[in-house]
């Protein structure tokens, strides 16, 4: 894993979005997208972040990078508190923290060629001298498996997966220390994905990168991560080393998540734990344990008190009153 040095620390981070209504756009409520999240990431580590759609993963990533202003809590990067740093002081740090955005279509400027898109950051942060720019851009493209002939083309001329690789090239161009990859491989077919995954691992070794790897693809997360963090409705419900997590997930939501992964073999059938009940809303999160409305193991206490995130085994944290009560047994094979 890493060398034990903490690169990123997040303390009780919250991000609420106002919900407005009526002609005067009065604030009528708050969407609690990220609601008190704490964790650390070690230098050189890959932390996989998984969780239901809408549980706050992208918001968490963007808040850490200060692309969204945190509502509460603190963010430390390389030992420095960056929570309230003014933009001028933030700029040099931005180079060290890059994000690969979930939607490559809207994050690439449609009026810029690939050359211009990749050069932009290189120029602003003076990563390479002017005369080396062209070569650098071509090298970047080749690393993500795109032909150097593409430099003069515009984003709309690419397929979904190609655009995603352009976003990856842009993020690694600045040789950052931390990369937050938000569904960075989701539009790639399996063979290209395997190549890009291998590339991300290579870059990590070369530049000792640290990744926050947001993905709903558990097989990929398992491939790349050292530890796994599971979010549910704005909160961390489980955090564990990869091996422990996949061998014995302790939170009922994690178990349901793993059991729902389809297996690429039409001959294999498995029992899925289908969660009943509607997905609750971050506007009105359920009382007590936020998962209690859908949890197959919920008891009375679950609706009353919120379970704290506790270390139940070395390095294995879980927020549940009955950790380990739901198991994967009988759900595979």
């Amino acid at each position: 894993m890493g060398n034990g040095e903490v690169l990123l620390r997040v303390e009780n981070l919250k991000k609420y979005f106002p919900l407005r209504a009526g002609v005067f756009k009065k604030v009528v409520g708050w969407i609690r997208a990220v609601d008190g999240v704490s964790f650390e990431v070690f230098s050189g580590e890959t932390l996989g972040i998984v969780g239901e759609s809408g549980c706050g993963k992208s918001t968490l990533g963007m808040t850490i990078l200060r692309l969204l202003e945190p509502t509460e809590g603190r963010i430390f990067f390389a030992g420095q508190d960056i929570t309230r740093l003014p933009p001028a002081k933030l700029r040099p740090i931005r180079k060290d923290m890059q994000m690969i955005f979930q939607d490559p279509f809207s994050s690439l400027n449609p009026r810029m060629t690939i050359q211009a898109i990749l050069e932009e950051g290189l120029r602003v942060h003076r990563v390479v001298p002017r005369d080396a720019m062209q070569k650098e851009v071509e090298m970047l493209l080749e690393r993500v498996g795109l032909s150097r002939d593409y430099v003069r083309r515009f984003p709309h001329e690419f397929s979904g997966g190609q655009r995603q690789r352009i976003s990856i090239a842009r993020a690694i161009a600045l040789r950052p220390r931390l990369v937050i990859a938000d569904e960075a491989l989701s539009s790639l077919d399996v063979s290209v994905r395997a190549q890009v995954l291998n590339l991300l691992q290579e870059l990590k070794r070369e530049y000792s990168l640290t990744y926050l790897f947001i993905s709903h693809d558990l097989a990929v997360v398992r491939q790349i991560s050292h530890r796994i963090l599971v979010m549910y409705l704005g909160k961390v419900v489980e955090l564990a080393p990869k091996e422990a997590f996949f061998a014995r997930p302790l939170h009922p939501y994690s178990v349901a998540l793993i059991s729902a992964v389809p297996i690429p073999d039409p001959g294999v059938r498995k029992v899925r734990i289908i969660l009943s009940g509607d997905v609750p809303s971050p506007l009105h999160p359920p009382s007590g344990c936020r998962f209690h409305t859908r949890c197959p193991r919920a008891q009375e206490i679950c609706a009353m008190t919120e379970p704290p995130l506790l270390e139940v085994e070395p390095g294995h944290f879980v927020a549940c009153h009955f950790p380990g009560s739901l198991t994967l047994e009988g759900t595979s094979g």
């Binding site: 239901e52 759609s53 569904e183 709903h216 558990l218 349901a256 389809p262 289908i274 997905v279």
Partner: peptide
């Protein structure tokens, strides 16, 4: 066209 790429497995199901 890739209808569930941004969805977690439970919602995908």
């Amino acid at each position: 066209d890739e209808p569930t790429t941004s969805l977690d497995v439970t919602i995908q199901a």
